[in-house]
């Protein structure tokens, strides 16, 4: 085994990273196709509010992030369906609102010595065995659901109105999609950090769309690009002593640059 993975914290980060790297682009594909790419970023900010509330109330921050993120995802979806506000304006409201609330909660909880930076930028050294199990179980469940609902998700992303007329339970499937997205954001938080979690769900997908010859190949390529980004990012963060989240996203951006250039030829 290479030196980098002889350290147990790196091994834990790798396993968690691979699970997240597998699920994030799969669910991200459907967000991008529905022009809802900023949804992941909005959820990431609500996850930060969850962390802050978790610390304040002495609950496991990752668990609190998962709960707050899921509730916010359901609320955003309900508002999207009712069309009371344009989608982008609604996401901006949730994003800034949850960040403002998180900052207030953090300032109240200052006495608790919260290392908020580790959640903002990710901290692979803090991935514990418990985190790993939660990631494996929830990530595995999310993966199974996305794969099982693949054909329905494709139809809804392509033409929601026709999917509804054909008799598909569109509202329920949309709700499942946003809950999976929320779980993915909460799981990816420790690996890439809340600020960059959206990037892992969107950039490998955009890279894949440049070169894909079918929807199936787009999903396979998006997952491949994402996994390559996670492994290359983690390894380079170890040897170059740089933050893992930034390294992972930069590798993903490099891949996007390559596929974009290939597509333009």
């Amino acid at each position: 085994m290479p030196e980098v993975f002889q350290y147990s914290f790196m091994l834990r980060a790798l396993v968690a990273g691979l699970v997240v790297g597998l699920v994030a682009p799969l669910i991200g594909t459907f967000l991008v196709l529905r022009r809802f790419a900023f949804f992941a970023d909005t959820l990431a900010h609500t996850a930060l509010l969850g962390v802050a509330l978790g610390v304040l109330m002495n609950v496991l921050p990752s668990l609190a992030a998962l709960v707050v993120c899921t509730l916010a995802a359901i609320a955003v979806e309900q508002l999207r369906v009712r069309r009371r506000l344009p989608s982008d304006a609604m996401l901006a409201l949730f994003l800034s609102g949850s960040l403002a609330l998180a900052l207030v909660v953090i300032s109240i909880a200052r006495g608790f010595n919260v290392n908020i930076l580790s959640y903002l930028f990710g901290s692979i050294t803090t991935v514990q065995d418990a985190d790993l199990w939660v990631t494996l179980v929830l990530g595995g469940l999310a993966l199974l659901l996305v794969l099982a609902l693949n054909k329905e998700l494709l139809y809804i992303s392509f033409d929601e109105e026709s999917a509804r007329v054909s008799g598909l339970p569109v509202s329920s499937i949309n709700l499942i999609t946003v809950v999976i997205a929320a779980a993915t954001v909460a799981l990816a938080m420790k690996i890439v950090g809340t600020l960059l979690v959206g990037a892992l769900m969107v950039i490998p997908v955009l890279a894949a769309f440049q070169v894909a010859r079918s929807f199936k190949s787009a999903m396979v390529l998006a997952v491949t690009f994402s996994l390559v980004s996670v492994v290359a990012g983690l390894v380079s963060s170890f040897y170059l002593n740089i933050v893992a989240g930034g390294a992972i996203v930069l590798v993903a951006l490099l891949i996007f640059g390559g596929s974009f250039a290939f597509h333009r030829r």
């Binding site: 196709l33 054909k151 329905e152 494709l154 139809y155 392509f158 033409d159 026709s162 999917a163 054909s166 008799g167 598909l168 894949a208 769309f209 894909a212 010859r213 079918s214 929807f215 199936k216 190949s217 787009a218």
Partner: peptide, 16 residues
């Protein structure tokens, strides 16, 4: 820009 083939679009008719 939607990366779906003709076959994949028509197969949506069988989804439900």
């Amino acid at each position: 820009g939607f990366p779906a083939t003709v076959w994949e679009v028509v197969s949506q008719g069988r989804t439900a």
